[in-house]
């Protein structure tokens, strides 16, 4: 464990909690892409299958359980509890355009052709594109509430911090996981456009982020 990875995990947890609290307190999931949240729940489910078979550390196990619980709770709030506030008419990104290439790639590029390893690789590739429906929804509506942009900021920051963690681990323990690194870089690149808007509009304007 290093400070970059710890900061990344905390940033990830903060993002998930920001979103969950926003939906719960406003009793509405307007402007939130349910599809992205389902994809994130799928990412955690396929990545943490070793939750009961491999024990890494208390921290690792606790964080996996927390991420799984909070992501499923978020999906539950969107599609069940506050479903009448869900903007399905704006959440129209075709997730099959993400799932098909990700499934194909995880069969092609993996460390071992075993179910657990392929599902882990699937979760890594899927996480890189899971935010697409949410970003697409924001471009479609042309705006995002500032709390939603803070969620996206911490979500994008988490994987950027993981990249720092991978650089650190390569130099200190000459460890590197190419699949995770390539996918993590792609994932962070997808956030760059949002980061630009976040720093130029939200942090300065202090209001909604309206797209040009």
């Amino acid at each position: 464990m290093n400070v970059f990875r710890l900061a990344g995990d905390v940033s990830h947890l903060v993002a998930i909690i920001i979103l969950l609290l926003k939906i719960w307190r406003s009793k509405s999931c307007a402007g939130i892409s349910g599809k992205s949240q389902v994809l994130f729940a799928l990412v955690f489910t396929t990545r943490y299958l070793d939750l009961f078979t491999v024990f890494i550390s208390v921290y690792n196990t606790v964080m996996k359980v927390v991420f799984l619980a909070l992501s499923y709770a978020t999906v539950y709030l969107i599609y069940m509890r506050f479903r009448n506030s869900y903007n399905s008419e704006n959440d129209t990104f075709r997730v099959e355009f993400l799932l098909v290439p990700v499934i194909g790639l995880s069969f092609l590029e993996n460390y071992a052709f075993t179910p657990l390893e392929i599902l882990w690789t699937f979760s890594i590739f899927l996480e890189a594109v899971a935010i697409m429906p949410q970003l697409f929804m924001i471009t479609k509506t042309g705006e995002a509430e500032s709390i939603t942009t803070h969620y996206l900021f911490f979500l994008g920051l988490y994987r950027a911090l993981y990249i720092a963690n991978w650089v650190w681990r390569y130099h200190t323990e000459s460890f590197y996981d190419l699949i995770a690194i390539v996918s993590g870089v792609v994932q962070t690149i997808f956030f760059c456009d949002f980061f630009y808007l976040y720093f130029t509009r939200v942090l300065r304007g202090r209001g909604k982020m309206t797209l040009p």
């Binding site: 990830h12 690792n60 993996n110 460390y111 882990w120």
Partner: peptide
């Protein structure tokens, strides 16, 4: 296939 890496990251 390269060797499977230890999965100690979240």
């Amino acid at each position: 296939d390269e060797e499977a890496k230890p999965k100690d990251e979240l």
